[in-house]
Write a protein that binds this DNA or RNA. Structure first.
Length: 830
DNA sequence: AGCACGCCGACT
DNA sequence: GTCGGCGTGCTC
C-alpha cells in the first residue's frame, strides 16, 4: 500500500481516443484536481493541434510521462463515472483492427454527436486596445465589425472579410493585441425541461383551501385558474398528486389567464417548479398489454430456442413470413429481463418506424429505449445515458445501437439478420452490426438470436455446420396461406402486343379486379425517380452526370435531372446538349412514372408513392403509412421500402416489375438478394384470412430462382448458392476484403491499384488477389475508381494477413508517386 | 481528416 | 514588398 503522500506526488497521464481518423492514442497530463476522479471511459476536453478543442475518451490511465514530448494538460473532465465502459473500449480496438480503420473512427460513429462537444474559436475585440494607427485598412474594418458584435468565430469573420483565409489577418491582429481569441465549448445535449405548477402545501389542508376559495370569490380570473387546477389534481384526496403538480401548459391550454397564474404564484398560493423529463415519457400513456399468449408452434419454437441456447451461443431462427416471430421474441426478452440481464433488439432502420415499436412499448413500457437515426440526437443521448444509469435494460435499435454501453447483456436479437443495411458502407468503420453483435455477446457471455424468413447464406451455413443452433417456424400464424405467385412472360406479351407501357395486360386485368373489390395493390419497382435516363431521339445521346460515370435520372417532381451517386442536380434541359435537338425522350421506368401511368389507366384510384423522395422526413413516412393502413389508398407504388417491415391488412395483390435486373446484377450475392427481396415483397400480399396474389413480370420465366421463389424453396436456393460459393471460393468459405483506389486522374488510379495488387499478390499469392478492375461505375464525384479484391480462406491467419494489407495500404497512401490518392478498405464487403 | 506553416509567383 | 495558392507534415 502506497502512502497517500507518495500517491499525491505521482502525476497521472491519460491516453485518450480522439474521435477522428488518426491512428494511435494521445497522451495528456491530468491536472491534480481530476487525478482521483478521472477514470477509463470518462470524457475529457483536450486541445488537439493548435486550433482544435475536442472531446476525447480516456482509454488508459498511467504514470509514465511520455519521453519524446511534453504532454498537454487535460482541460476539463466531463464525467466522473465511465460514460463508455472499459469493455467497450476493448471492443472499439477490436473493431478498428478487424475492419481496418482507426479507433478514432470507431469512437466517432459510436458516440452520438450530442456527447461530443463542439468547439468554436471565437474572436473578440480587445477593449484595452489603444493603438489604432498600427492597423491596416482591412484590419480596421474588421475591428469595426467586431465592435458591433460580442464575438465572432473564424467562419463568420471570413465571410465578412470576403477572404478564404482570414487566419493571417487575425494573427496580425493578435500580435498587435487588438483582439482576444477564446474557445467556446458547450455541451450540445440539452435535457428536456417541463414547467410545472402546484398548490403550495399549506393549502393541502381542507379548511385553509376553503378559506382561500372564499377569498378568491372577488377575483374571478384567479379563481378560474384554481378551479381548473383542482379539476385536474384532486388535492385533498391525494396530496402526493399535488406534489407532482400539473404542467403549466395544461393550464394555459385551458385558456385561463396567464397573468392570473403569475399573481397566484406571487402570492404564494401556487408554486412553479421544473422537472427534467425523459424525451420518451411523453408517449408513456401506453396501455400495458399482457404478454401475448403463444400459439403451439410459437411455444415450440420458444422452447427449442431455449434448448439451443444451452449448447450454442448463437441460434438462427428461420421463420417464414407471418409465422409470428415477434411473440417469441417478446417472451424471450421478458425472460432475460426477469433474470436481471439486459437485452438489445436490432432491427433494420426501415422496419423500426412501424408497428413493432408500438407493440413492444405496450409490453415493456419505460424499460425500453429506442435508438433510431430518425430521432434527434438528444434522444440518442438520452438512451445512451439511460443505459449507463440502468434506466433502460432493454433497447430496440438500428445498426449503431451495438455501440451502446451495455455491461450485462443476456440476449441480442438480430431481426431480419440478412438485411444489408446492417453493414455500414460509408464512412469507416465499415462494420457489420450482426457480426459485431455476435462478438459483443461472446464477450459478455450473452446469447444471440438471428431471425429471418430468408437467412443470409452465411448464417444458414453456420447453422448447417453446427456452429449456430437452428430453430424453424414453418407455420403461418392464424394459418394464413402463403401468397400465390404467378409469372408473366413480358417477352411473349410484347410479341402479342399485350403490353401497355410497362404493364402487361394480364397485370392490368388483375389490378382492375382488385380495385373493383376495393382491395389494395402494391407495385414494386426498385428504382426511384421518373425515368432512369433521358435520350435524344436524333443523336441517341444520353444525359450523364458531369462528376460521375452514370446517366442522370429524370425526376418529375422538381422537373430536374439528378445523379443518384453524387447528388448533383440540374434543371431538365429542353434541348439535347450534344446536338440541340428538342426530341428528348424519357427512357425506362422509375416509381414516378409507374405512378403517373397508373393514374392515367385508373383515374378514380387513389395512388400513393413510397420511396426515398416521398419519405425524407419522419412525419412524411408515418403519414404515408397511416394513409395506407386506414385504407385511404388503393395503390401503393414503391421501391424496396414497400417490401420491408410493413404490414398492411388490406393488400391482396403485389405486382413486381423488372425481377430480371435484380437477379442478374453483377455480384456474387445477387441470387440471394433477389430471393430475399422478392420473397419479402411477396409476403406483403394477403396477411390475414385470404390468400394473396403476386405477379412477377419477367423476360425469362424459366429461371430456376423464380421457381424457388414461387415454391418458397429457401433450402433449394441455399443448396445451389452454397455450391457456387464453394466452387468459386466466396463467403462463407472465404473472407473478402475490397480495396478501392481513387484518384482524379484515371491512369494514376489504375497504376496505383496495379502496384498495390502486385505487392499484395507477392506475399498473399496471385489466387488470393483479384484485379484491379473497373467497378460498375468507373467515376464518382470526379474520382476514377479501381478495385482490388482479396479473398482469404478462413484457415489463414487473418490477423497477420490484415496487418500486412494495412501496411501496404499505408505505403500506397504515403507514396510520393501517387499524390492525392485515396484508398478505402472494406472488410467483409457486400 | 483538418490546418498551420512555408515556399513561390503575381501584382501594387 | 504583400497577398493568395498550393504542397507537406503534424497533431500528445
Amino acid at each position: 500500500m502506497q502512502s497517500l503522500e507518495f500517491q499525491e506526488e505521482i502525476t497521472v497521464f491519460a491516453d485518450v481516443i480522439i474521435p477522428v481518423a488518426i491512428p494511435n492514442l494521445y497522451t495528456y497530463r491530468v491536472p491534480r484536481e481530476y487525478a482521483t476522479s478521472i477514470c477509463v471511459g470518462a470524457r475529457v476536453i483536450v486541445q488537439f493541434g493548435k486550433t482544435k478543442v475536442v472531446t476525447a475518451v480516456v482509454a488508459k490511465l498511467h504514470n509514465k510521462p511520455p519521453e519524446k514530448y511534453q504532454a498537454k494538460y487535460v482541460l476539463e473532465l466531463l464525467d466522473d463515472a465511465p460514460l463508455v465502459t472499459p469493455q467497450q473500449i476493448d471492443l472499439f480496438h477490436w473493431i478498428s483492427e478487424y475492419y481496418m480503420c482507426t479507433v478514432g473512427e470507431v469512437l466517432n460513429v459510436a458516440l452520438p454527436s450530442g456527447l461530443k462537444i463542439s468547439s468554436l474559436s471565437k474572436v473578440q475585440f480587445n477593449p484595452e486596445f489603444s493603438y489604432p494607427d498600427l492597423l491596416t485598412e482591412r484590419e480596421r474594418e474588421i475591428i469595426e465589425e467586431l465592435k458591433k458584435h460580442q464575438s465572432l468565430n473564424y467562419d463568420e469573420l471570413a465571410r465578412f472579410a470576403e477572404v478564404k483565409n482570414v487566419y493571417h489577418i487575425i494573427k496580425s491582429l493578435i500580435q498587435k493585441k487588438a483582439v482576444i481569441v477564446f474557445e467556446e465549448v458547450r455541451e450540445k445535449y440539452s435535457p428536456k425541461i417541463l414547467k410545472k405548477v402546484r398548490l403550495t402545501s399549506f393549502y393541502e389542508d381542507e379548511s385553509y383551501l376553503k378559506i382561500l376559495l372564499g377569498e378568491l370569490e372577488k377575483k374571478p380570473q384567479q379563481l378560474d385558474v384554481l378551479l381548473h387546477y383542482l379539476r385536474y389534481v384532486p388535492v385533498l384526496r391525494s396530496p402526493e398528486l399535488n406534489n407532482k403538480g400539473l404542467e403549466k401548459s395544461a393550464l394555459t391550454k385551458a385558456e385561463v389567464s396567464d397573468s392570473a397564474i403569475k399573481t397566484l404564484v406571487k402570492n404564494g398560493i401556487l408554486e412553479q417548479f421544473e422537472v427534467v423529463v425523459s424525451r420518451f415519457e411523453e408517449d408513456l400513456d401506453f396501455v400495458e398489454a399482457p404478454t401475448p399468449t403463444l400459439s403451439s408452434s410459437q411455444e415450440k419454437a420458444f422452447s427449442e430456442i431455449m434448448n439451443s441456447f444451452q449448447e450454442k451461443d448463437t441460434t438462427l431462427l428461420h421463420g417464414i413470413t407471418g409465422s409470428g416471430k415477434t411473440e417469441v421474441y417478446i417472451k424471450l426478452i421478458e425472460q432475460v429481463l426477469e433474470s436481471g440481464s439486459q437485452v438489445l433488439y436490432l432491427l433494420p432502420e426501415i422496419a423500426l418506424t412501424t408497428q413493432i415499436v408500438v407493440r413492444l412499448r405496450k409490453v415493456f413500457g419505460d424499460k425500453m429505449g429506442i435508438y433510431h437515426s430518425r430521432f434527434s440526437d438528444n434522444e440518442r443521448v438520452e438512451v445512451w445515458k439511460g443505459v449507463v444509469s440502468g434506466k433502460f435494460s432493454f433497447v430496440i435499435g438500428v445498426r449503431s445501437a451495438v455501440f451502446l454501453p451495455f455491461d450485462n447483456l443476456g440476449l441480442i436479437i438480430v431481426d431480419e439478420e440478412h438485411e444489408t443495411s446492417y453493414k455500414q458502407f460509408d464512412p469507416a468503420p465499415r462494420y457489420h452490426a450482426r457480426d459485431v453483435a455476435v462478438v459483443i455477446a461472446h464477450r459478455q457471455k450473452a446469447k444471440v438470436l438471428l431471425g429471418s424468413a430468408t437467412p443470409s447464406i452465411e448464417s444458414f451455413y453456420n447453422a448447417q455446420t453446427n456452429r449456430y443452433g437452428f430453430v424453424e417456424m414453418t407455420e403461418r400464424f392464424g394459418s394464413t396461406q402463403l401468397p400465390d405467385i404467378e409469372l408473366i412472360d413480358v417477352k411473349v406479351a410484347r410479341k402479342q402486343k399485350m403490353v401497355k407501357g410497362d404493364f402487361s395486360d394480364l397485370m392490368l386485368d388483375r389490378v382492375r379486379l382488385n380495385l373493383e373489390k376495393k382491395e389494395q395493390t402494391i407495385f414494386f419497382q426498385n428504382r426511384r425517380g421518373y425515368s432512369p435516363y433521358i435520350q435524344c431521339e436524333d443523336c441517341d445521346t444520353i444525359a450523364s452526370c458531369n462528376n460521375c460515370d452514370v446517366s442522370l435520372t429524370y425526376h418529375y417532381n422538381g422537373q430536374e435531372l439528378r445523379c443518384h451517386y453524387c447528388g448533383h442536380h440540374e434543371p431538365m434541359p429542353r434541348t439535347c446538349q450534344a446536338c440541340g435537338s428538342v426530341k428528348l425522350r424519357t427512357r425506362g421506368y422509375g416509381t414516378e412514372k409507374i405512378e403517373e401511368e397508373l393514374q392515367i389507366l385508373f383515374p378514380s384510384a387513389k395512388i400513393a408513392r413510397m420511396d426515398l423522395d416521398t419519405t425524407r422526413t419522419k412525419t412524411a413516412f408515418q403519414t404515408l403509412i397511416n394513409e395506407v393502413e386506414s385504407g385511404g389508398v388503393d395503390m401503393l407504388v414503391g421501391t424496396q421500402m414497400v417490401a420491408k417491415g410493413l404490414d398492411f391488412e388490406k393488400v391482396s395483390l403485389v405486382c413486381v416489375f423488372d425481377a430480371d435486373r435484380m437477379i442478374h446484377f453483377p455480384d456474387f450475392r445477387s441470387a440471394e438478394r433477389a430471393f430475399q427481396l422478392l420473397t419479402q415483397v411477396a409476403g406483403r400480399a394477403g396477411r390475414r384470412g385470404t390468400q394473396g396474389k403476386v405477379l412477377i413480370q419477367t423476360n425469362n420465366p424459366s429461371q430456376k430462382i423464380l421457381k424457388q421463389i414461387i415454391e418458397n424453396d429457401y433450402v433449394g436456393l441455399y443448396k445451389d448458392e452454397i455450391k457456387e460459393r464453394e466452387d468459386f471460393q466466396y463467403p462463407p468459405f472465404t473472407r473478402l476484403i475490397q480495396i478501392t483506389v481513387k484518384h482524379i486522374d484515371q491512369p494514376i488510379a489504375e497504376k496505383a491499384a496495379e502496384e498495390l495488387a502486385n505487392k499484395l499478390a507477392e506475399k498473399l499469392s496471385k489466387q488470393r488477389v483479384l484485379g484491379p478492375e473497373k467497378p460498375l461505375v468507373e467515376r464518382i464525384r470526379n474520382q476514377f475508381l479501381f478495385e482490388v479484391m482479396i479473398k482469404l480462406e478462413k484457415t489463414l491467419n487473418l490477423k497477420a494477413a490484415k496487418a500486412f494489407i494495412a501496411e501496404e495500404v499505408m505505403n500506397l497512401r504515403l507514396s510520393k508517386d501517387f499524390k492525392g490518392i485515396s484508398v478505402v478498405v472494406d472488410v467483409d464487403c457486400g
